[in-house]
Protein backbone atom coordinates (compact mmCIF):
# COMPACT_ATOMS: atom_id res chain seq x y z
CA UNK A 1 0.00 0.00 0.00
CA UNK A 2 0.94 3.63 -0.34
CA UNK A 3 1.37 5.91 2.64
CA UNK A 4 1.85 9.66 2.86
CA UNK A 5 4.07 10.79 5.66
CA UNK A 6 4.60 14.09 7.40
CA UNK A 7 7.73 13.71 9.48
CA UNK A 8 9.38 16.09 11.89
CA UNK A 9 12.87 16.90 10.61
CA UNK A 10 15.28 18.76 12.82
CA UNK A 11 18.99 18.63 12.16
CA UNK A 12 20.08 19.07 15.77
CA UNK A 13 19.02 20.58 19.06
CA UNK A 14 19.92 24.10 18.05
CA UNK A 15 18.09 24.36 14.75
CA UNK A 16 14.37 24.77 14.22
CA UNK A 17 12.43 21.74 13.11
CA UNK A 18 9.64 21.42 10.57
CA UNK A 19 7.33 18.81 9.12
CA UNK A 20 8.45 17.38 5.79
CA UNK A 21 6.21 15.40 3.44
CA UNK A 22 7.20 12.05 1.99
CA UNK A 23 5.29 9.49 0.06
CA UNK A 24 6.13 5.83 0.43
CA UNK A 25 5.07 2.97 -1.80
CA UNK A 26 5.30 -0.76 -1.27
CA UNK A 27 4.33 -0.79 2.40
CA UNK A 28 2.85 -4.08 3.55
CA UNK A 29 0.46 -4.52 6.44
CA UNK A 30 2.77 -7.03 8.13
CA UNK A 31 5.51 -4.45 8.48
CA UNK A 32 5.95 -2.85 11.83
CA UNK A 33 5.80 0.92 11.97
CA UNK A 34 9.56 1.11 12.39
CA UNK A 35 10.15 -1.24 9.46
CA UNK A 36 8.11 1.20 7.40
CA UNK A 37 10.52 3.93 8.50
CA UNK A 38 13.46 1.61 7.67
CA UNK A 39 12.06 1.28 4.17
CA UNK A 40 11.74 5.05 3.84
CA UNK A 41 15.32 5.43 5.04
CA UNK A 42 16.63 2.92 2.51
CA UNK A 43 14.97 4.92 -0.23
CA UNK A 44 16.22 8.24 1.12
CA UNK A 45 19.76 6.87 1.40
CA UNK A 46 19.66 5.57 -2.15
CA UNK A 47 18.66 9.06 -3.26
CA UNK A 48 21.57 10.46 -1.25
CA UNK A 49 19.34 12.26 1.26
CA UNK A 50 19.79 12.10 5.02
CA UNK A 51 17.69 9.29 6.47
CA UNK A 52 15.23 10.07 9.25
CA UNK A 53 16.87 9.52 12.63
CA UNK A 54 14.73 7.60 15.10
CA UNK A 55 15.42 5.53 18.19
CA UNK A 56 14.70 1.82 18.49
CA UNK A 57 16.45 -1.18 19.92
CA UNK A 58 14.74 -4.39 20.99
CA UNK A 59 11.73 -3.96 18.67
CA UNK A 60 9.72 -6.27 20.83
CA UNK A 61 8.15 -3.71 23.11
CA UNK A 62 10.25 -4.11 26.23
CA UNK A 63 13.37 -1.94 26.10
CA UNK A 64 11.54 1.39 25.88
CA UNK A 65 13.98 2.96 23.46
CA UNK A 66 11.53 3.59 20.62
CA UNK A 67 8.69 6.05 20.66
CA UNK A 68 7.27 8.74 18.42
CA UNK A 69 4.01 10.63 18.37
CA UNK A 70 1.87 9.20 15.58
CA UNK A 71 -1.11 11.23 14.47
CA UNK A 72 -1.18 12.99 17.81
CA UNK A 73 -0.86 9.87 19.98
CA UNK A 74 2.41 8.79 21.61
CA UNK A 75 3.22 5.29 20.23
CA UNK A 76 0.19 5.64 17.98
CA UNK A 77 -2.05 3.05 19.60
CA UNK A 78 -5.58 4.33 19.14
CA UNK A 79 -8.47 1.96 19.18
CA UNK A 80 -12.04 2.92 18.41
CA UNK A 81 -13.43 2.54 21.91
CA UNK A 82 -10.32 2.18 24.01
CA UNK A 83 -6.66 3.00 23.51
CA UNK A 84 -4.62 0.03 22.30
CA UNK A 85 -1.59 -0.56 24.48
CA UNK A 86 1.44 -0.68 22.25
CA UNK A 87 4.94 0.60 21.79
CA UNK A 88 5.82 2.13 18.45
CA UNK A 89 7.79 -0.97 17.46
CA UNK A 90 4.79 -3.22 18.06
CA UNK A 91 2.43 -1.11 15.99
CA UNK A 92 1.86 -2.65 12.56
CA UNK A 93 1.07 -0.95 9.31
CA UNK A 94 -2.14 -2.88 8.95
CA UNK A 95 -3.61 -0.37 11.43
CA UNK A 96 -3.45 2.22 8.65
CA UNK A 97 -5.52 2.45 5.52
CA UNK A 98 -3.99 2.53 2.05
CA UNK A 99 -3.36 6.10 1.02
CA UNK A 100 -3.63 7.51 4.51
CA UNK A 101 -1.49 10.35 5.79
CA UNK A 102 0.54 9.79 8.93
CA UNK A 103 2.04 12.62 10.94
CA UNK A 104 5.11 11.63 12.96
CA UNK A 105 6.60 13.90 15.59
CA UNK A 106 9.12 13.33 18.39
CA UNK A 107 8.26 13.34 22.09
CA UNK A 108 8.02 17.02 22.97
CA UNK A 109 8.59 18.27 26.48
CA UNK A 110 10.92 20.72 28.15
CA UNK A 111 12.79 17.90 29.87
CA UNK A 112 13.23 15.98 26.58
CA UNK A 113 15.24 18.17 24.20
CA UNK A 114 15.27 16.98 20.59
CA UNK A 115 18.66 15.63 19.49
CA UNK A 116 17.80 14.97 15.87
CA UNK A 117 14.60 14.39 13.90
CA UNK A 118 12.58 11.98 16.04
CA UNK A 119 15.25 11.34 18.67
CA UNK A 120 15.02 13.08 22.01
CA UNK A 121 17.20 13.06 25.11
CA UNK A 122 15.35 11.24 27.89
CA UNK A 123 18.22 11.09 30.36
CA UNK A 124 16.10 13.15 32.77
CA UNK A 125 14.22 9.94 33.56
CA UNK A 126 17.49 8.34 34.66
CA UNK A 127 18.11 11.35 36.90
CA UNK A 128 14.76 10.78 38.61
CA UNK A 129 15.67 7.15 39.38
CA UNK A 130 19.13 8.25 40.47
CA UNK A 131 17.54 10.52 43.06
CA UNK A 132 16.18 7.57 44.99
CA UNK A 133 14.47 4.95 42.83
CA UNK A 134 16.32 2.02 44.37
CA UNK A 135 16.76 -0.05 47.48
CA UNK A 136 20.18 0.44 49.03
CA UNK A 137 21.64 -3.01 49.33
CA UNK A 138 25.24 -3.74 48.50
CA UNK A 139 26.15 -6.84 46.57
CA UNK A 140 26.67 -9.77 48.86
CA UNK A 141 24.82 -8.16 51.76
CA UNK A 142 21.47 -9.79 51.08
CA UNK A 143 19.71 -12.18 53.44
CA UNK A 144 18.25 -15.43 52.12
CA UNK A 145 15.52 -14.82 49.57
CA UNK A 146 13.03 -16.70 51.75
CA UNK A 147 13.85 -14.72 54.87
CA UNK A 148 10.82 -12.49 54.29
CA UNK A 149 7.47 -13.66 53.01
CA UNK A 150 5.64 -11.16 50.90
CA UNK A 151 1.89 -10.98 50.52
CA UNK A 152 1.12 -12.09 46.98
CA UNK A 153 -1.31 -9.27 46.31
CA UNK A 154 1.20 -6.64 47.29
CA UNK A 155 3.91 -8.43 45.35
CA UNK A 156 1.65 -8.48 42.29
CA UNK A 157 0.92 -4.79 42.67
CA UNK A 158 4.62 -4.10 42.95
CA UNK A 159 5.06 -6.08 39.76
CA UNK A 160 2.35 -4.17 37.88
CA UNK A 161 4.16 -0.95 38.67
CA UNK A 162 7.57 -2.43 37.94
CA UNK A 163 6.62 -3.22 34.34
CA UNK A 164 7.27 0.43 33.39
CA UNK A 165 9.71 0.49 30.47
CA UNK A 166 10.74 4.12 30.88
CA UNK A 167 9.83 5.07 27.32
CA UNK A 168 8.58 8.52 28.26
CA UNK A 169 5.24 8.30 26.43
CA UNK A 170 3.54 9.55 29.61
CA UNK A 171 5.58 12.74 29.49
CA UNK A 172 4.92 13.17 25.78
CA UNK A 173 1.18 12.72 26.23
CA UNK A 174 0.80 14.88 29.32
CA UNK A 175 -0.41 18.39 28.43
CA UNK A 176 1.96 19.59 31.15
CA UNK A 177 4.96 17.46 30.20
CA UNK A 178 4.84 15.85 33.63
CA UNK A 179 6.67 12.64 34.57
CA UNK A 180 4.39 11.81 37.46
CA UNK A 181 3.26 8.46 36.09
CA UNK A 182 6.86 7.37 35.55
CA UNK A 183 7.97 8.49 39.00
CA UNK A 184 4.90 7.09 40.71
CA UNK A 185 5.41 3.69 39.06
CA UNK A 186 8.79 3.36 40.76
CA UNK A 187 7.45 4.75 44.04
CA UNK A 188 4.60 2.23 43.98
CA UNK A 189 6.85 -0.68 43.01
CA UNK A 190 9.18 -0.13 45.95
CA UNK A 191 6.51 1.01 48.40
CA UNK A 192 4.65 -2.29 48.06
CA UNK A 193 7.62 -4.38 49.17
CA UNK A 194 8.95 -4.79 52.69
CA UNK A 195 12.48 -4.21 51.39
CA UNK A 196 11.42 -0.78 50.19
CA UNK A 197 10.15 0.50 53.53
CA UNK A 198 13.29 1.89 55.21
CA UNK A 199 13.89 4.42 52.45
CA UNK A 200 10.26 4.96 51.53
CA UNK A 201 9.77 8.38 53.07
CA UNK A 202 12.98 9.91 51.85
CA UNK A 203 12.65 8.30 48.42
CA UNK A 204 9.40 9.99 47.50
CA UNK A 205 10.62 13.41 48.55
CA UNK A 206 13.86 13.13 46.68
CA UNK A 207 12.37 11.74 43.50
CA UNK A 208 9.57 14.30 43.33
CA UNK A 209 12.01 17.09 44.15
CA UNK A 210 14.37 15.95 41.42
CA UNK A 211 11.55 15.64 38.93
CA UNK A 212 10.50 19.25 39.56
CA UNK A 213 14.09 20.46 39.37
CA UNK A 214 14.54 18.79 35.99
CA UNK A 215 11.83 20.91 34.41
CA UNK A 216 8.99 18.40 34.18
CA UNK A 217 5.52 19.87 34.53
CA UNK A 218 3.19 19.15 37.41
CA UNK A 219 0.28 16.76 37.53
CA UNK A 220 -3.25 18.09 37.04
CA UNK A 221 -4.92 14.67 36.93
CA UNK A 222 -5.71 14.76 33.24
CA UNK A 223 -4.95 11.08 32.74
CA UNK A 224 -3.42 11.20 29.25
CA UNK A 225 -0.31 9.48 30.63
CA UNK A 226 -2.11 6.33 31.70
CA UNK A 227 -4.14 6.29 28.48
CA UNK A 228 -1.04 5.96 26.29
CA UNK A 229 1.15 3.90 28.64
CA UNK A 230 2.17 0.78 26.68
CA UNK A 231 2.37 -1.21 29.90
CA UNK A 232 -0.87 0.00 31.43
CA UNK A 233 0.61 1.61 34.54
CA UNK A 234 -2.59 2.78 36.25
CA UNK A 235 -3.39 6.33 37.26
CA UNK A 236 -3.75 5.09 40.84
CA UNK A 237 0.03 5.01 41.07
CA UNK A 238 0.05 8.79 41.12
CA UNK A 239 -2.31 8.80 44.08
CA UNK A 240 0.00 6.32 45.80
CA UNK A 241 2.86 8.75 45.28
CA UNK A 242 0.74 11.60 46.60
CA UNK A 243 -0.21 9.65 49.70
CA UNK A 244 3.42 8.83 50.37
CA UNK A 245 4.43 12.42 49.73
CA UNK A 246 1.81 13.81 52.13
CA UNK A 247 2.74 11.22 54.74
CA UNK A 248 6.38 12.18 54.41
CA UNK A 249 5.56 15.71 55.54
CA UNK A 250 4.61 14.37 58.94
CA UNK A 251 7.48 11.97 59.44
CA UNK A 252 10.79 12.78 60.96
CA UNK A 253 12.71 10.34 58.77
CA UNK A 254 11.46 12.27 55.78
CA UNK A 255 13.96 15.04 56.40
CA UNK A 256 17.01 15.12 54.19
CA UNK A 257 20.07 15.52 56.34
Amino acid sequence: MKINLRIWRQHNGKEQGRLVQYSLDGVSGDMSFLEMLDLLNEQLTEKGEDPVAFDSDCREGICGQCGVVINGVPHGGQGVAQPVRTTTCQLHMRSFADGSTITIEPWKAAAFPVLRDLIVDRSALDRVIEAGGYISVNTGAAPDAHAVQINKKRSDRAFDAATCIGCGACVAACPNGSAMLFTSAKITHLAMLPQGQPERVLRVKRMVGEQDALGFGGCTNIGECAAVCPKGIPLESISQLNRDLIASLFKHDGKDD
Binding site: H146, I150, K152, S155, H189
Partner: peptide, 17 residues
Amino acid sequence: DQCVAQGVPFAREYGGL
Protein backbone atom coordinates in the same frame (compact mmCIF):
# COMPACT_ATOMS: atom_id res chain seq x y z
CA ASP B 1 19.03 -13.38 47.40
CA GLN B 2 20.58 -10.27 45.94
CA CYS B 3 17.77 -9.63 43.49
CA VAL B 4 15.03 -10.14 46.05
CA ALA B 5 16.76 -7.69 48.38
CA GLN B 6 16.85 -5.15 45.54
CA GLY B 7 13.10 -5.43 45.15
CA VAL B 8 12.86 -7.65 42.07
CA PRO B 9 9.24 -8.88 42.15
CA PHE B 10 9.71 -12.58 41.42
CA ALA B 11 6.57 -14.68 41.17
CA ARG B 12 5.28 -15.75 44.58
CA GLU B 13 2.91 -18.32 45.93
CA TYR B 14 -0.07 -17.40 48.08
CA GLY B 15 1.95 -18.20 51.16
CA GLY B 16 4.30 -15.39 50.24
CA LEU B 17 7.28 -17.53 49.30
